[in-house]
Structures are given as structure tokens and as C-alpha cells.
Amino acid sequence: MTDAPSMIDWDLAVRLGSRFAGEGPDVSAAAADEAVRELRAGAERSTGLVREFTSLSAAEHTAPVLVVDRAGWIKANAETFEKILTPIVGRLTAKKGTPSGISAAIGSRITGAEVGVVLGFMGSKVLGQFDPFHDPHGRLLLVAPNVVHIERELEVDPTDFRLWVTLHEETHRVQFTAVPWMRDHLHAQMNALADSVEVGESLENGIKRIGESLRGGSGSLVDLMSTPEQRELIDGVTGVMSLLEGHADVVMDGVGPEVIPSVNAIRRKFNVRRKGIGPLDRVLRRVLGLEAKMAQYRDGAIFVRGVIAKVGMDGFNAVWESPENLPSKAEIGDHEAWVARVHA
């Protein structure tokens, strides 16, 4: 994907991830065309619905809507990760030095394989995603095979489910478009985390404790490989991500009853599926930090609903006014503390 030297073999990551993810369910050409058409139409329809519900003003059609297969999602995310990680890796190698020759080649392939497995697992699960770091204004990805797979598995109405999914992802586009400082804020937090990393110590500590996590111990790899200072930075990112994901969940359910007759049944079945569908799936979710991701949806939605009940939608929207108004991880679990601080 680039001719520049890299600590990660991104081409290998994409190839391996695509094989690991597979192609998805068997779908006729007509059914595939219908799924793509409905997902595109759902994204278009969601814009006005999200604006009306949230009162957030965001320009329309700022980001391309890409309906992709699993391999397409993996390639897109590898490109984004490479873009984000390149300056971070540069700073880390400046601290530790850059390996050369065969060591660099072997190391980049090992890391590429590891990234590929993670992307492959995620690529078989993700329904959609808004990528805020794609220039110039982000891009909205909808993974058609996964949407079809889940709607079949849950036995829900396909048209309702597809609109429900696009409502969530369009909410993310609106968040980053209506709040233009959000992208730079998240990027700055990730850079601060990279600046705090001591590569040797972090990796050594993490390797020693990966086995504990696999044997059922608590914590993801992010938790196991973090110093107290890094955890403080991660807590800041967690607060923001919980807000964004919880807000999108509230919007998709709040808009739902007006336009999606089966929204309550979809939510009930989908929440059961989020817990994992088998022992291996649950272990991988825990090790990769996906359990924490699921908690972001749950805790963030509770926070958003609590604030809206207390001060209304306009009062909640104060959260978008400046980075200082973003909730901390602690405030995500105590919405009244956020209300008292911001609306004092």
C-alpha cells in the first residue's frame, strides 16, 4: 500500500484478513443488488431523520457512502490505520531505533499477520462504520454481507434492519460534521498516547499477561499493556467514544418507532447477539477489547438518555460546544455529575 518502509506489512494484513473473514452468506445477484440499493437509500433517508431528532446542523453529502464487501472494509480500515499509525510509528522508532534488514522484514510480516487476524475477525462482524479520518470529510462504510448475515440470523425484517443500521452510522457522520473540532481532538488524544509509550516495557509486560487474559483473566490487551499514565489517556478516549456510540444508539432507537415498525424487536434480538455467540467468539471479544466496546454502547446510551431526561435535547447538545464539555469516563457513569459541571 506504500513504498515507504513500515513496521507493519499492510499488504499481508489485507490479504490475510480477507481470507480470515471469508466472503459471507450466499446471496443471489438480485438479492445483493436489493441490499445495496436499500442501504444506499437508507443512508440518504437517515440524514434528515437524524437532523430532526438531534437538532444538530450538518451539511449533507459531505462524505461518500460506500457499500462494500468484507474485503473492501478490511482494505479501507488498513488504509486508515496506516495513515494514523505512520506518524506514531515514526515517533516510536525515533525513541527506540528502526530495525533493518531481515529483522525488519520478519518483524513487519509478523505484525502484519497479527493485524490481519484482527481485521479479519472484525471484518466478519462490523455492519457499518463512519471513518472520520479519511480526507477530506470522512467516508461512510456499510458492509452489505454482514448486514444480510445478521438480519437472517436474527430473523428480522430486512428493510427495517437496513434503515436501522444506516441511522446509527449516519449519526456518526452528523456528529463529526456538525462538530468539526471532534476529529482533531481525537487525533490529538491518540498522539498523546503514542508519545507516552515506552515500547520495550509495554510489549514485555503485555506478552507476560496475554496468557492470563486468554485463560479467562480480566482485561483486554489494551488494559494489559497500559501504564497508569496511559490508562488516564485511554479513559479520556473511552469517555468520548462512549458518548459517540451511545448517542448513535439513542438516535437509532429514538427515530425508529416513527419509521421502523419492528425497531423494538430488532433492538431486543440485537442486544442478545452483542454478548457473543459462542465460547471462541467471547474469548476473542474480550482479548481484542470488544467487551469494552460493547460497554461503550450500553454506558454511553444510559448517559445520553439520563442527560436528556434531566435537561432536554438542547441541554444535552452543550456536550458538542467544546472539548471541555465532553464527559469523562467517570461522568459517563454519573450523568448528574456532568449536568452539574456543565450546567452549573
Score class of each variant (00 low, 15 high):
H172K: 13
H172C: 08
S202Q: 13
H172V: 12
A188E: 15
I234K: 10
D184A: 15
R162W: 12
T227P: 02
L221F: 06
R152G: 09
S213K: 08
H185S: 09
S196H: 04
V179Y: 12
E169H: 10
S226M: 07
H187M: 13
S218I: 02
F161P: 09
E229I: 05
L221A: 03
G219R: 06
R215T: 05
S213H: 01
D223N: 07
E169V: 12
V199I: 14
V179G: 05
L203C: 01
A188C: 06
T166Q: 03
L203P: 02
D135G: 00
L140G: 04
V165G: 07
P136N: 12
H168Y: 00
S218R: 14
R231W: 05
Q175K: 07
R183S: 08
G200P: 03
M182V: 12
G216W: 12
L154M: 10
G206T: 07
D184G: 12
W164P: 05
I210G: 02
V156H: 01
A194I: 09
G219F: 06
D135I: 04
L193Q: 07
S196V: 04
S213C: 00
E201M: 04
V199F: 13
E232K: 11
M182K: 13
T166H: 07
L221R: 02
R231Q: 15
Q175I: 12
L233A: 07
V199Y: 12
A192W: 03
E151G: 03
L214M: 11
G216Y: 14
P136H: 11
H168E: 02
L141E: 04
V143S: 04
V165A: 01
L154K: 00
L163C: 10
V147K: 10
A194Y: 10
E153P: 03
K208V: 02
P136F: 09
V174M: 07
T166V: 01
L167E: 13
Q175D: 11
P136S: 15
